[in-house]
Simulated scan of single mutants.
Amino acid sequence: MNQRKTQDKTSVWLFTVLFLSLPGYVQAQFTSSISGFFSKEWEGKQAMVVAKPLQGPPLIDTTTIVNRSATFTIKLTEPCAAYLWIDGLKEDIQFFIDSPKISIGVESGLFGSAIIAGSASSERWAEQFTRSQYGRDLEPDDQFALLNALTSGDSLTAFTLEYKLDSLRTLDRNAVANLILEQPALASSWYMFASSMFSYRQMLDLFNSLPTFASYPSYQRIKAELTQKQLGKKAPDFNLTTAMGKPVHLSDLTSRFVLIDFSMRHQVSCQKRHFDLKKLYQKYHPLGFEIVTVSVEFDRIYGRDALTKYPLPWIQVQDFMDAPLITKDFAVNYMPDNVLLDANKIMIGRDMSVQELDAMLEQLLSK
């Protein structure tokens, strides 16, 4: 009889969580109270909510489960992903903080998983998190083989593996983009967008589909970044030096078209890009095409001999992560990246594959 009463009490609580804890309206700044109801065997255990904002360190609130309950308070600038950790629980409970009040119910053997109410985004976020974890689980073996190929100098195997990984990353980006576009009004859709890497064109298209989040600080930050990258604008000038100490001024280059290629010499994706660009350079350089590779190094000491050890058949200069110059001016966040300029140094292409560059140059230089 007592067991039946306990089950009835639990069912009433879960009904209340599911149907009475309605999502609240989310401002750009808010405090969220997260309440939990847990299995009897977790009484007295430590529990912790870890929020993962887009910028800055994780936000953590820790407490002890008392009377099968625990309450956490998280102050956020904008909604973000989070997880609930319980001492002894095998897997963390993933959820999304997008409301002032969220309830999480975990009852052993009842439904087999946590029940989350008050968060409009948590179900979609859990789906995305599970899918992204699966994707990461598939990569380590290939990454390890890639590292071995690089160490042994087997560039053919390294490039083959990089092509495979690049294809997987493209599929992953497209899958994330589809999830975002299915429900663009969910806060988790914005978080997925702002925490993922997309090509310039894909990023621009997705950003224009997410005006709901214009009040978020991250929205304004990404908007400013996209303004820097906007095609049709004049590229910022720069003055850097080659390995021989020769100054390179962008404004002094007289070629019909200039590709600014941003790379890191240790990334296989950048090495592969340079391998393909060499064919493109041979084809179009006599027609007025120039490349300037900006090799991004950790610092000046680390990159001192890099330009002489890894020569390229075109202009090569350096920028440094500890004091970035043109990578910051061009809003470069990852590599490889590139910007195609016309003779007036107007940006006419961004983040283009070698195949896209080939097609565009074929059209432009045939005029």
Score class of each variant (00 low, 15 high):
K75F: 00
Y163V: 02
A185V: 12
L250K: 06
T242E: 12
S32P: 08
S32D: 00
S251D: 08
R304L: 14
W125R: 04
L110I: 12
I180M: 04
P23T: 10
S251L: 11
L253H: 01
V49D: 04
E107L: 14
G36Y: 03
A158M: 10
D172E: 14
I315M: 13
P57I: 03
S21D: 09
D342H: 11
K283W: 02
R136A: 11
A28S: 15
S121M: 05
H249D: 03
P236S: 12
T170M: 13
P247D: 10
L325D: 14
W314A: 12
V268P: 00
D8M: 10
V292H: 01
R221P: 00
S99E: 01
S35W: 00
G109Y: 10
F238I: 13
Q202R: 09
E107C: 03
A359T: 15
K52D: 03
F144E: 10
V50T: 14
E356R: 11
I104F: 00
D237F: 05
R173P: 01
Y302S: 14
E139V: 14
A331N: 02
C270F: 02
L280D: 09
K164D: 03
R273A: 10
S121I: 06
K223V: 00
F95P: 00
A81Y: 02
P247C: 07
L14T: 04
L18P: 00
L240A: 04
T227R: 13
E297K: 07
L259A: 10
L84P: 00
K9S: 13
A235V: 04
K9N: 09
L186N: 08
E91Q: 14
S103E: 08
R221M: 12
F330S: 06
T160S: 13
A331R: 03
G112L: 08
H249Q: 07
S218K: 04
P140H: 05
A126F: 07
P217G: 11
A120F: 00
A194W: 01
P336E: 04
